[in-house]
Design a protein around this nucleic acid. Structure first.
Length: 170
DNA sequence: AGTAGGATCGCG
DNA sequence: GCGATCCTACTG
């Protein structure tokens, strides 16, 4: 994936991300490929649920940079959250990857794939050991949109249908 | 320097 | 429904 892919609107990238493969080079040089099933959109400074809402800080600085980089941070003192930065330089936005492969929940995902702070601000590319690939064997699915998880404090933004989930077509 | 509050999880 | 657990950001 090149920067053209990541620097579109966040919702666009999120829709594309579903059904693609999250690829991780493990310590033993093997590569794990996980189908991305669930993501959440955090778009702009207006969004009260976004870390960018309170302005640029040392932690969230990556969100303000160009799309195509990983934003990894610690949550609740024990879980690493994996986000993909989107949009152009100066516009803070990211997509939280909540579920991929058989791993449900953002904290479980990063634990299984051995993802932590060392990947923060790294490029989403094979050279960094964590990247995205198109899924050549994709199955048909529909996209389910619901409110995001764990952000009740965000007022009206807590209701916005910014969680995208892959659902089997029936 | 001290502190409040999380984009969670797994066990009851 | 709750406790674990620690970093960040904000306050004084």
């Amino acid at each position: 994936m090149n920067e053209e892919f990541f620097q579109r609107t966040t919702i666009e990238v999120a829709e594309n991300l579903l059904g693609m493969l999250l690829c991780r080079k493990m310590a033993d040089e093997s590569v794990q490929r996980c189908l991305i099933r669930e993501v959440e959109v955090y778009d702009g400074v207006e969004d009260k649920a976004s870390h960018a809402h309170k302005g640029k800080t040392k932690r969230n600085a990556v969100m303000f940079g160009p799309g195509g980089y990983w934003y990894v941070y610690l949550c609740y003192g024990m879980h690493w959250m994996l986000n993909l930065v989107t949009e152009k330089e100066g516009y803070p936005a990211a997509i939280l990857i909540r579920g991929a492969g058989d791993y449900g929940g953002p904290g479980v995902l990063t634990k299984k794939l051995n993802i932590s702070h060392s990947l923060n601000a790294k490029l989403c590319s094979e050279q960094s050991g964590l990247w995205i690939e198109k899924n050549l064997a994709s199955h048909p699915y529909t996209t389910l949109r619901t409110p995001r998880i764990g952000i009740d404090y965000a007022g009206e933004w807590a209701l916005a249908p910014l969680r995208l989930k892959m659902a089997e077509r029936c």
